[in-house]
Every structure is written in structure tokens, then in C-alpha cells.
């Protein structure tokens, strides 16, 4: 049973990609860096280059952490949907398989100034 109801009931999802004016949602979080209370929510066109997403959006968001300036992006370990994954930095989000509401995590082993 997908919902307890008196007759068949089909729910309409509120956050379908069509509602975002040609953009999509992406969630990104930095493991072990809990100065930021939750994963960041980004809203970008699917054709955005992965590199642009990181350099133009993510870098500014994580600036307040003392480790931010020390991140070596080419050594960062990525996860997509909690699974190990490698991005293509020059490809778009869509070509990287980052679809609407995908969740990316990144890890920077050895960097851990504020949250132990």
C-alpha cells in the first residue's frame, strides 16, 4: 500500500524539476565540516559545468570554514548518493549524471580544524 486511503490516491510531487524554470536542485555537503549546519542547496541549470558549480558557487559558500582555503580540489574525494564517484570537471552537471535533487558529498581527509 503506498498510502492509506479509501480509494486509489496518486500524490503530485511538489518539487518536480519542471517547477524550477529550467534549473534543477543539487545538494552538496562537506563531510566532517559541521560549521555548516546542513547540506547546501544549489539551484542551477543542468548545463552548468561541474567546475563552474564548484568554483563559482561552492567555494564562496564554504569560505567561513578555516579549512576552506586549504582544500586541494584535485585531491578531493567525492560521493554521489552516498556512493564513491568521480566527477568530470569539464562536463556539465547533466553529463556528470547529476540529476535533479542529486546529493554530492566531498571529503578532504586530514583537514579538520573546527569539527573533530
Amino acid at each position: 500500500m503506498t498510502v492509506v486511503s479509501r480509494k486509489e490516491y496518486i500524490g503530485v510531487p511538489r518539487d518536480r524539476v519542471e517547477n524550477f524554470n529550467g534549473k534543477q536542485l543539487i545538494y552538496v555537503s562537506w563531510d566532517q565540516h559541521l560549521l555548516f549546519a546542513a547540506s547546501f542547496l544549489l539551484c542551477l541549470p543542468p548545463e552548468t559545468c561541474f567546475r563552474d558549480m564548484v568554483e563559482q558557487n561552492l567555494v564562496a559558500l564554504i569560505e567561513a570554514d578555516p579549512d576552506a582555503a586549504l582544500v586541494e580540489w584535485d585531491k578531493v574525494v567525492w560521493l554521489k548518493g552516498n556512493e564513491a564517484w568521480k566527477p568530470d570537471w569539464e562536463a556539465s552537471l547533466a553529463d556528470n549524471g547529476i540529476n535533479h535533487k542529486a546529493h554530492l558529498r566531498f571529503q578532504t581527509p586530514g583537514l579538520n580544524t573546527v569539527c573533530g
Partner: peptide, 23 residues
């Protein structure tokens, strides 16, 4: 248990990027 119910959730953060606010 009841996905057809919860897919309809109005989530405040994604809502900010939809009509009428659009970010």
C-alpha cells in the same frame, strides 16, 4: 510506508526557488 502521501510535501527551501519567489 506511504510514499504517495509524502511526495506532496511542501518543503520550504526548494519552494524558495519556485513560483512566486524564484530565488
Amino acid at each position: 510506508e506511504e510514499p504517495e502521501k509524502y511526495v506532496q510535501a511542501w518543503l520550504p527551501m526548494p519552494q524558495l526557488f519556485q513560483e512566486p519567489i524564484n530565488g
